[in-house]
Design a protein around this nucleic acid. Structure first.
Lengths: 154, 154
DNA sequence: TAATAGATGAGAACCATTCCAATGTAATGA
DNA sequence: TCATTACATTGGAATGGTTCTCATCTATTA
């Protein structure tokens, strides 16, 4: 269960985006804000089952799609066949393990300059009016490197 | 139909990757090498129907997945529900229209430095052993800007 | 040329996601 | 506060892209 602070914060986020505040939206957003586990719809359903047992899968899909439209949340694919969701409160990107699918958030000072540079170059070259970007980096997570007996040569 | 030069080039690519050379693989790769239309399985099937009328959808999926595993081809989602494929001969990334789904290839001098920088930072921060990345930029393509009557303020 | 590991093809199966229609409810304003 | 209404939620059915199965075929090799 999310803290009071998170509940207040997420309530405000919904209002700021002029989204009708329903218990379902509130609790789903609070879950995403307070967890960085990049959940699927199924994981969210299981996690919130105690608080809203009758919440339909369609509602979760609808809600997440709404959040994505409002750029509150981003969708991620890690190769397991279902979509993962991540609250996008602060700019970051994702490293995805090609072996186990683990997703971790990454950022560093100067990342936003990299982003900005990419977007400006893209606008210049393609003529697109840019609204956003996605960056992902693939590789083996530390656990899988060990599991697969791979030597890191540095 | 792909040119002789493309057929020779793609034959060599298959051999270099130690992939068994079948007519299906050869023609699909040749199609991808000579078209930059980011096709779906259905589009490929239609385009090659005259040359190999009995080619099954499973074969196209199998073939493309094999190419993806060998990093010859990348998968793209533009929001229309199906996967698009792109031969990845030279480093580039994609700009995707959020209105009509149009995908265009983009690159610029210095892009590979941006990529390299991102990968190095990611390895350093996450401990992942990096094998690749994907960058995408979203926005409205020039046609949709006009269609939607959007003024470009620059 | 024979042996065989691997590829193909047709259709069934899968399953994440969307659609639909009925019901419920949050926001608005009188 | 209450009535109105536009929007959200539900649950189940439908959708459709992708994978699976397995019998058949074939590219490679020795």
């Amino acid at each position: 269960m999310a803290s009071n602070a998170v509940m207040e914060e997420t309530l405000q986020i919904l209002k700021d985006h002029k989204l009708r505040v329903t218990p379902q939206r509130h609790i789903i957003l609070a879950y995403l804000v307070s967890h960085h586990n990049h959940p699927t719809v199924e994981i969210i359903r299981d996690a919130l089952g105690k608080e809203l047992p009758n919440m339909g899968a369609s509602t979760i899909y609808n809600t997440l799609n709404t959040f994505v439209d409002h750029h509150l949340v981003v969708e991620l694919q890690n190769g397991d066949g279902s979509t993962h969701y991540d609250y996008f409160g602060t700019p970051h990107y994702h490293a995805i393990c090609t072996n186990c699918g683990r997703i971790v958030d990454v950022t560093y000072p100067g990342f936003s300059d990299t982003e900005k540079g990419l977007e400006e170059k893209t606008a210049e070259i393609s003529g697109y009016m840019i609204s956003g970007n996605h960056m992902e980096v693939y590789g083996l997570c530390p656990e899988c490197q060990i599991k697969l007996g791979i030597k890191n040569n540095e």
